[in-house]
Design a protein around this nucleic acid. Structure first.
Lengths: 197, 197
DNA sequence: CCTCCCACCGAACGATCGTTCGGTTGCGCG
DNA sequence: CGCGCAACCGAACGATCGTTCGGTGGGAGG
């Protein structure tokens, strides 16, 4: 039990340092210091810098995918599923800003074959969005069009989730509603019909 | 005249190397090699690595802002202005992918005071979008809401412009129409009324 | 009590980094 | 012609990087 806590502390230290300084600028010495270990002591637990980045990404993506799936399971209609995805993503961005930053910025720096493993998990996330938009699509958009729209949506979400706009994680709920309405009905929609609290 | 060509070659070499490897991983030796200069020869022209990054960003942002302003000047209605912004951004992303990558990913790595100078130019670009959305807004959105929507829009654009989806720069035109329609009328809009070629 | 091994550390290695220094060309201008 | 300066280069400096090696201490098992 204790050694798993050790690992958790190491991964969290790596996450914080890498998020703040970027992968290549984050030195293993600084990560070791943040994890209250010596440089060589850290190497007792992990094989190298690349594995450190992998552990952070793997853990973060598992958290994100898990949160998304539980949120999607609760939703019935495609519209509420979309809202669930948006809210989950924004909530994750607010609560785990460091993780999201690394997911979006540093994952390409992984070496193969770990990079492929992370790419697969990122692809899984994209697939969730793609399948959702396919359900939602009123006309018969092509796969390419749906993929574009999915990237549009995720780009929107990362655009606000990354920047330090809103602070508390409770802000994700109303903000998700606004973002969802804008994505579904457009910027010009003159609001009116809102029927929930 | 010849020495300005030398500078141009140096900045382009720096742009290519930095875009491919990231700022901190791009070594000055590799940039010098790409510019057909020796390491010390490169230092004859630029003061250091930070200045190199600044030159790339400054030139790229001037190009982007210039293209945006000429495109905006041609447009009459707010709707066509929005379309002009979208098309300019996507076109820039396709034709100068390396520049856009550096603008979005590496600009924060600049040291002060150059960082502030680049931040001001980025802010100017954001202001163009913000003012445009204010014109377009049917109901009276607050400044914060408009800022959020601007970041949403720019996030969308960077989301597709960065990824290697479409190749030719001619693809920017129709794609811009689709993106503009999605932003204005939403994903659910069943298309119909399209009245141009 | 002795032994062994796990957790951990200090110190070093070679590589690479950004930057600087001391030149050496060669061309323009007086 | 010859002087000077702009343009360029080879080589090195010190710092920092990721990684490795040779330990040491102490608690668990015999």
């Amino acid at each position: 039990m204790a050694i798993e806590d050790r690992y958790k502390g190491i991964v969290e230290a790596a996450r914080d340092v890498v998020a703040r300084r970027g992968y290549h600028q984050a030195s293993i010495r600084e990560i070791a210091r943040a994890a209250s270990l010596s440089l060589a002591g850290l190497y007792h637990y992990v094989g190298g810098k690349d594995e450190l980045l992998f552990l952070v990404l793997d853990r973060a993506l598992d958290t994100l995918l898990g949160a998304l799936d539980t949120a999607l399971a609760r939703a019935r209609t495609p519209e509420t599923k979309l809202l669930a995805l948006i809210q989950t993503h924004l909530d994750f961005g607010f609560r785990h800003a460091a993780d999201l930053k690394i997911i979006n910025r540093d994952w390409e720096l992984l070496e193969e074959p770990r990079r492929a493993e992370i790419a697969a998990k990122r692809g899984e996330y994209l697939q969730r969005g793609l399948a959702l938009l396919r359900e939602l699509d009123p006309r018969g958009r092509s796969g390419d069009e749906l993929l574009s729209a999915t990237n549009l949506l995720l780009g929107m979400l990362n655009g606000i989730a990354t920047r330090p706009f809103l602070r508390s994680s409770d802000d994700a709920r109303p903000l998700a509603g606004e973002v969802g309405a804008l994505f579904l009905y457009g910027f010009l929609e003159p609001v009116e019909a809102h029927h929930d609290a």
